[in-house]
């Protein structure tokens, strides 16, 4: 009885610990960061400003350099996580906003890349570029932007 109880507790502990460490690991690797072209002036932006940029309303950086927005496809898992957790909007809303701009002529669509490699190279070589990535895909060709 006693041993059985201990065994259960150990098992339970292992399970809880396993779950914790598991979720910890997955969370760390899932962390999404905002990246910019290395020479982009601002290093910190508010969530509101970030939303204005990704909804294509704000067109220039403070130094008047055009903002080049890079995004992954609508159905890409990183894209949905990014819109939901960083911008706090759903990807279908962002799509509707872009479509309204593009098909009424009042704005332009963001630049679509197919995967994170293209995201990284696109943002690294385009002046004024902004995009997003999983933290573990980062390298030093781009700069990480802080979100307030």
């Amino acid at each position: 009885m006693f041993f059985k109880c201990i065994r259960y507790k150990i098992l339970l502990l292992c399970l809880v610990f396993g779950m914790l460490s598991n979720s910890y690991v997955s969370k760390a690797s899932e962390t999404i960061v905002i990246i910019t072209y290395p020479e982009v002036e601002p290093q910190t932006l508010s969530k509101n400003t970030l939303r204005s940029i990704f909804s294509m309303r704000l067109k220039t950086w403070p130094d008047n350099i055009p903002i080049r927005v890079f995004v992954l496809p609508d159905d890409h898992p990183i894209h949905s996580t990014f819109t939901k957790e960083i911008l706090n909007v759903f990807s279908y809303q962002l799509r509707a906003t872009w479509d309204r701009l593009v098909f009424s002529g009042t704005g332009q669509a963001p630049i679509k890349v197919n995967n994170y490699e293209e995201m990284l190279t696109g943002v690294a070589k385009t002046p004024g570029a902004i995009g997003y990535l999983k933290e573990r895909h980062l390298n030093n060709s781009v700069r990480v932007l802080n979100v307030e």
Binding site: K59, N64, I65, P66, V102, F103, G105, T106, G107, Q108
Partner: peptide, 15 residues
Amino acid sequence: NASLQPMPSLQLSAQ
């Protein structure tokens, strides 16, 4: 449709 930004503050669009 096509759109073009000859400078940051100007956009030309037509459909």
